[in-house]
């Protein structure tokens, strides 16, 4: 009898312990850990493309295809974004009507800071992108905002990215539940299928990087924003991160959101965070 009781007691204790472990694992799985997730995100690409140097992922399709890479390297001698870059440099230095400049709005006078954008603004409780910060700077100095998708905005961000080339993406998620929520919302947006084509961002840039979609070679999502803004031959001009998101949405036959909508700001936050540690390569050139 005593033996039987001991077996029962032992079994019960074992079951309780097992239950305890399982419950702990469930809780752990539910908790968002961006640092671990970013590591898993990067490892996915590093393992999928073991021959691609880690810092090369920021060069998008050129990291996936040797022929394209050679063509691009030759093109870089006279890069198509050069005019925008020169214009951006001049615009950046030209004072507003009140005598102030963009440099007055940014840390370190706006030079070499691209890798810290977007950031989570605790006061506003939202993500602030570089494009948004530039237009806010203009508004604060009594100037009209620029279009978020191209032209002046692309030129300004091209110059700011250029001054940050080689610096490693360094996006912070502060200890604020709203920042974590923004990251999570961005992640959800990235993986959510939309549009009549039923594509998510991940359908192309996670499941199929390196493969062709019509004549294009799909870029990996890892480091995809490090090259922004870009000159796209398809656009015959420069485009910002906002333009990239809008175009992607349209291509899946989804009505694009407004530039700098919360969703776009959040997905930029997510994509930039998971690219932490990879160099800024913008402005870029793409087919």
């Amino acid at each position: 009898m005593k033996t039987r009781s001991a077996i029962w007691l032992g079994s019960a204790l074992f079951a309780l312990t097992a239950l305890g472990f399982t419950a702990q694992r469930v809780i752990a799985a539910d908790k968002i850990d961006p640092a671990t997730e970013a590591k898993a995100f990067q490892n996915f690409y590093f393992q999928k493309f073991p021959n691609v140097k880690h810092e090369d992922f920021v060069n998008g399709p050129y990291s996936m295809n040797e022929d394209m890479k050679r063509q691009w390297q030759e093109k870089e001698e006279f890069p198509p974004y050069e005019f925008a870059l020169d214009a951006g440099k001049e615009m950046f230095a030209t004072p507003f009507k009140n005598g102030k400049t963009y440099a007055d709005c940014f840390p370190n006078g706006g030079i070499g800071i691209r890798q810290n954008y977007p950031y989570f603004d605790g006061k506003e409780g939202k993500v602030v992108t570089l494009e948004l910060a530039l237009n806010r700077c203009r508004a604060a100095n009594g100037e009209e905002p620029y279009s978020y998708v191209k032209d002046e905005m692309a030129s300004l961000t091209a110059y700011m990215a250029f001054t940050s080339r080689g610096k490693l993406m360094d996006i912070k998620i502060p200890d604020d539940p709203r920042a974590l929520e923004a990251y999570e919302n961005g992640k959800r947006y990235f993986y959510t299928r939309r549009g009549q084509m039923n594509f998510s961002c991940a359908s192309c840039h996670v499941q199929s990087p390196g493969e062709r979609i019509r004549a294009e070679i799909l870029a990996p999502a890892l480091g995809i924003l490090n090259a922004m803004p870009i000159y796209r031959s398809e656009w015959s001009g420069m485009g910002t991160t906002s333009r990239r998101f809008i175009t992607c949405n349209s291509q899946t036959r989804a009505v694009p959101l407004e530039p700098q909508s919360d969703e776009y700001r959040d997905v930029e936050y997510f994509l930039s965070y998971v690219a932490n540690g990879l160099p800024i390569s913008g402005p870029g050139a793409r087919p």
Partner: peptide, 9 residues
């Protein structure tokens, strides 16, 4: 809910 199936973990 379905988006979670595509997430890199």
């Amino acid at each position: 809910e379905a988006w979670k199936a595509m997430e890199i973990r």
